[in-house]
């Protein structure tokens, strides 16, 4: 089965952030999927993937939490693809998959915990975890998008920001760095490709995979503000109007520390921050409200109107 067919209907794992601060990412992902005729079936009774925090307390506990989500998709719902738009969730499911394939100790802990918790143990290879970028790229693709674009993003300059968790560390993403057509871990381009297909002009942005300090956004805010300022300024210097994001932690980190830099350091960087799914959505002719632009902390409503996209 080709990826195109395989990804047509996927188990959707929104994760905790997409039900909270990343709500507009949730809304826009669903709306874009619907507009593109793709099928999302939410993972039943899912739990937190463990995120960075549980991993810090104990990595194998995070492996278990992520494995439970994949077990539900595989064993309760008979799905073979899980799509996670949140970089953190995506990263953790990939990491769990890697550990369960290569580390007997992780297999032992997960199997013991799963038995005690009373559900089937997830076994490596039962599902394939993909990101929202893979999902759109491998089903509709650039050509398909071009055909469906109603409001071209023509004239909008975008800095594509991928963050840390989508490409690092390399070993948990065996499908990346496989030559033409595959995603690159050093210079990722899937988001660039999709937004270019929607008409946007991607600027040369050297901080695509820089860190926003999301792990310490509240516990070491000064560091995070500095890191975010770097990203905002670099994007602005590269000539971008908008930073496109693909992760709720990055997105809210950029928005939060854009304000914090303004309030604490007196540094204002005027640049818009939108989820890539929000940009794709308006390009597909959806109203900004339908893709949750009003739910973002930073205000891009006027900007989209000005550019004829609202």
């Amino acid at each position: 089965m080709t990826k195109k067919d395989k990804y047509q209907k996927v188990a959707y794992y929104p994760g905790c952030a997409l039900e909270g601060t990343g709500h507009s990412y949730n809304r826009s992902t669903k709306a874009v999927g619907k507009a593109l005729g793709l099928d999302l079936v939410e993972v039943e009774n899912w739990n937190c993937c463990g995120a960075m925090e549980v991993k810090n307390v104990d990595p194998k506990l995070q492996t278990y939490l992520s494995s439970r989500v994949m077990s539900t998709a595989a064993n309760e719902m008979d799905m073979d693809v899980v799509m996670a738009p949140c970089n953190g969730c995506y990263h953790n499911l990939k990491k769990a998959e890697y550990d369960l394939k290569h580390d007997p100790e992780s297999v032992e802990v997960v199997s013991k915990l799963s038995q005690k918790a009373g559900h089937k143990t997830y076994e490596a290879g039962q599902v394939e975890t993909i990101h929202a970028l893979d999902w759109i790229k491998d089903t509709v693709g650039e050509e398909g998008l071009k055909e469906r674009v109603k409001n071209s993003l023509n004239g909008i300059k975008v800095a594509n920001y991928y963050g840390c968790m989508y490409t690092r560390p390399r070993h948990i993403f065996p499908e990346k760095d496989q030559g033409p057509g595959s995603e690159s871990t050093s210079k990722p381009h899937f988001m660039d490709d999709l937004l270019a297909a929607a008409g946007a002009e991607n600027v040369e942005f050297p901080l695509k995979t820089a860190c926003c300090g999301g792990a310490h956004t509240l516990s070491d805010s000064d560091t995070s503000t500095k890191l975010v300022l770097n990203i905002l300024k670099a994007a602005k210097l590269a000539g971008a109007d908008v930073i496109a994001t693909e992760c709720p932690t990055c997105h809210s980190g950029l928005e939060m520390h854009q304000i914090r830099a303004e309030k604490v350091l007196g540094e204002t960087v005027d640049i818009k921050i939108l989820y890539f799914t929000q940009l794709l959505g308006v390009a597909l002719g959806l109203k900004p409200r339908k893709v949750g632009v009003h739910e973002n902390v930073s205000d891009s409503r006027g900007f989209l109107k000005e550019r004829g996209l609202a």
Partner: peptide, 22 residues
């Protein structure tokens, strides 16, 4: 460290409810 406090608050909530309400 503040980071450890954050990890602990977070993990306690995941253990308690299975999910995070930010």
């Amino acid at each position: 460290s503040p980071s450890m406090h954050f990890d602990e608050v977070f993990t306690e909530q995941v253990l308690k409810t299975g999910k995070i309400e930010e």
